[in-house]
């Protein structure tokens, strides 16, 4: 995720102090990974340098936490461009799982057992996310659903690979 663009986007609704930006970010997007203060201030320093934000005011006392930041017109354009740009789909062409399956077959170990234990591990995490989704608000539901759909895609791959193990074994040991 682009922290810079996200902080810029949060500034569009009005100027904020660094600590306020961090708090809002953590509430909306942080979940398990809150932003470090240092990351907020280093990001704001970079955005200042690029002219995407400006200092709107400084409270007495000095220090970076006293600055209030406002987005500039260039910053608004930058957010608009980022939002309009589709994210590049990640194809995961070199997966660890595929490597493990092939190595298991090459070394005479059970690839089926490997796939089974991976399936159990995926399902364990999916259960945890499903529980969190059931107890959570809409934000939790959407974030967990995103993770669940990706895990489900992995599981479908595990099933398909399990169904093709004999074929794969014949190819890799040829």
């Amino acid at each position: 995720m682009s922290i810079g663009h996200t902080l810029l986007g949060l500034l569009e609704s009005g100027p904020r102090h660094g600590y306020d930006l961090k708090r809002t970010f953590d509430e909306r997007f942080g979940h398990d990974r809150p932003l470090a203060y240092g990351q907020v201030y280093s990001t704001m320093a970079r955005l200042l340098k690029s002219g995407l934000v400006e200092v709107d005011g400084i409270e007495p006392g000095g220090g970076p936490e006293r600055k209030r930041y406002a987005i500039t017109d260039a910053g608004i354009t930058d957010v608009a461009t980022w939002l309009a740009q589709p994210e590049k789909p990640e194809p995961y062409l070199q997966t660890t799982l595929y490597t493990k399956v092939v190595l298991a077959l090459l070394t005479g170990r059970s690839a089926a057992d490997l796939l089974d234990s991976q399936r159990a591990e995926h399902l364990r995490l999916m259960r945890e996310l499903t529980r969190r989704k059931r107890d959570g608000d809409l934000a939790d539901q959407l974030i967990c659903d995103h993770a669940l759909f990706h895990l489900e895609a992995d599981l479908r791959w595990l099933e398909l690979t399990a169904a093709r193990l004999d074929q794969l074994a014949a190819e890799v040991t040829r």
């Binding site: 089974d116 399936r119 159990a120 995926h122 399902l123 999916m126 259960r127 996310l129 499903t130 669940l148 759909f149 895990l151 489900e152 599981l155 479908r156 399990a162």
Partner: peptide, 16 residues
């Protein structure tokens, strides 16, 4: 056969 549905369970039994 849907993992997201199975995720509502306490545990799974795999039939193959």
């Amino acid at each position: 056969h849907e993992a997201r549905v199975a995720a509502y369970s306490d545990r799974e039994i795999v039939v193959r």
